[in-house]
């Protein structure tokens, strides 16, 4: 993209882009740490994850303010307008991802204090990896204005959902086999649900990237349909 006649406008958009990526990186790290803490049972570590969520919340507020300033000062149009509209949606999804990490950290603390065998397994780890890969792809797509990365992210959501179904079936089996495992299993299920939601937010971000890049509204349709619409645009 060629530069604006106004260098300051370029700088404002660039700093906005950088800030969003920084917030995205922070959200990813929070999820990763929450899951790490969950497996290790390190309560002090999980406490830091909970505290650090404030940073992400603050970033959302700051970026929101920046967007408002750019709109008021520059009256952006076309790609610039679509970028700012997308940023406003993306940061809301990132903030929610931060909340999910905090939720996982809180439940991690609860679970580590419960007695009995753990009900965690590799499935959750695997699911987290896919969800975070989705997030990275969507954010890379945002940084490079690349819809192919974004659609790749949307495609992966099927795997996350399948993994969630599998974890949920497994936890139901535990609960049926041993009623004492119910509390732990329900908490674990909530954690799995939180990670599944991380995948959904990453999908939303990817859809915002498609809107930014192509001006196409691809919400509420399947990954295949998204590709189809992009191809036809």
């Amino acid at each position: 993209m060629t530069d604006h006649t106004s260098k300051n406008f370029d700088l404002e958009l660039e700093s906005l882009r950088t800030y969003v990526l920084k917030m995205g990186g922070a959200a990813e790290q929070q999820v990763r740490k929450a899951i790490e803490g969950l497996y290790s049972g390190d309560q002090a570590f999980l406490e830091t994850v909970i505290r650090d969520d404030d940073r992400i919340n603050q970033m959302e507020i700051d970026i929101d303010a920046l967007c408002n300033q750019v709109i008021a000062k520059r009256q952006p149009t076309a790609i610039d307008l679509r970028m700012i509209v997308s940023v406003l949606k993306v940061i809301s999804d990132l903030e929610r991802i931060g909340d999910k990490a905090r939720k996982v950290a809180r439940l991690g603390i609860t679970l580590s204090s419960l007695s009995g065998d753990g009900v965690l397994n590799e499935g959750l780890n695997h699911m987290t990896e896919i969800a975070l890969k989705m997030l990275r792809l969507a954010l890379d797509g945002f940084a490079r204005v690349d819809v192919s990365l974004a659609t790749e992210a949307v495609h992966l959501d099927k795997l996350v959902n399948a993994e969630y179904q599998s974890i949920s079936r497994q936890l139901i089996t535990y609960m049926m086999e041993d009623p004492r495992a119910i509390t732990r299993s329900l908490d674990t299920l909530t954690i799995a649900k939180a990670i599944e939601r991380v995948g959904d937010h990453a999908t939303n971000i990817a859809e915002s990237v498609v809107y930014m890049a192509k001006g196409l509204n691809v919400r509420h349709i399947s990954a295949d349909e998204i590709e189809d619409r992009i191809a036809r645009s």
């Binding site: 530069d3 006649t5 406008f9 149009t77 076309a78 790609i79 307008l81 679509r82 192509k214 001006g215």
Partner: peptide, 19 residues
Amino acid sequence: IFIKPKRKETEDYITGRFG
């Protein structure tokens, strides 16, 4: 035109990338 112009020349002009 103002949200998704079809041509790059239009986009460059309306977004102030002209010149």
